[in-house]
Design a binder for these strands. Structure first.
Lengths: 126, 126
DNA sequence: ATTGCTGTACGAGTCTGATCGTACTGCATG
DNA sequence: CATGCAGTACGATCAGACTCGTACAGCAAT
């Protein structure tokens, strides 16, 4: 079998519509650090969030409550903030809710292959 | 510019010569967990070790002292153990010294694209 | 304005991991 | 066998992160 070619799977970058609320503060694409990104992804909960965003986000952003995660709200805030600080997700405020999506283009440019790893990840069987 | 194709760079897997000492205890290839591997790589010192092994290991294994790392020995033991426990490196005892190399084939099979990220990583400028 | 909802801020408790000194093991060589 | 060297084991210390309760801010709709 020839060596596999690694491409990010069928994830396409939607052009960002105009007139969106400004994103919350986030690191610039050129400031993303591999060690920081990997650290943020070394948690199964966060890995699950990002993978879900990648695989089921055929539309656009999703609010925090959209993921069926059985944790207190303050814990979710903590993890979404960690993902945003690492530069993995972008968050925007839409009235009440704060919606998130993966910074696909930035990550694919700086760390080609990374998103494919996340998309292919399978959570521990329980 | 077309989307880049992500392949592990010019790293070839040398067939393991016969008659080597047994590897130290390590997780089996099918037990490797992405979150554990990413966690082990979220440290710049360990990232540097793995990258150095990948890029300059045209020969075979390297002893711990071969990396020019200015840290006490007990710290190095700690990090090499973490890398081995995560399944990233394999270690063998050769008389006095314990030599390490990256488990290239296992990692490339389970997590295609990961080694390319490490090889392309640039340590923080200092 | 009052109620309800999404999510934040802050702080405490807890846990894991990084760092490193010291003492030790195990092998090799004279 | 005595010395020297590579690396380990153990333990102490410290910093950072995860978890979560509680109180709060901000928007929306009645």
């Amino acid at each position: 079998m020839p060596a596999a070619v690694h491409r990010t799977p069928a994830i396409r970058v939607l052009p960002e519509p105009e007139g969106l609320p400004d994103p919350l503060p986030e690191p610039a694409a050129e400031d993303l650090r591999l060690e920081t990104v990997l650290g943020a992804l070394s948690d199964t909960l966060r890995l699950r969030i990002v993978r879900t965003l990648l695989l089921e986000a055929e539309r656009f952003d999703h609010p925090c409550g959209w993921f069926g995660i059985d944790r207190p709200k303050s814990s979710l805030t903590h993890h979404f903030k960690a993902l945003r600080a690492a530069g993995i997700i972008r968050q925007r405020q839409y009235g009440l809710e704060r919606r998130s999506h993966v910074r696909i283009d930035d990550l694919d440019t700086r760390f080609p292959g990374l998103l494919g790893l996340i998309a292919a990840w399978e959570p521990e069987a329980d």
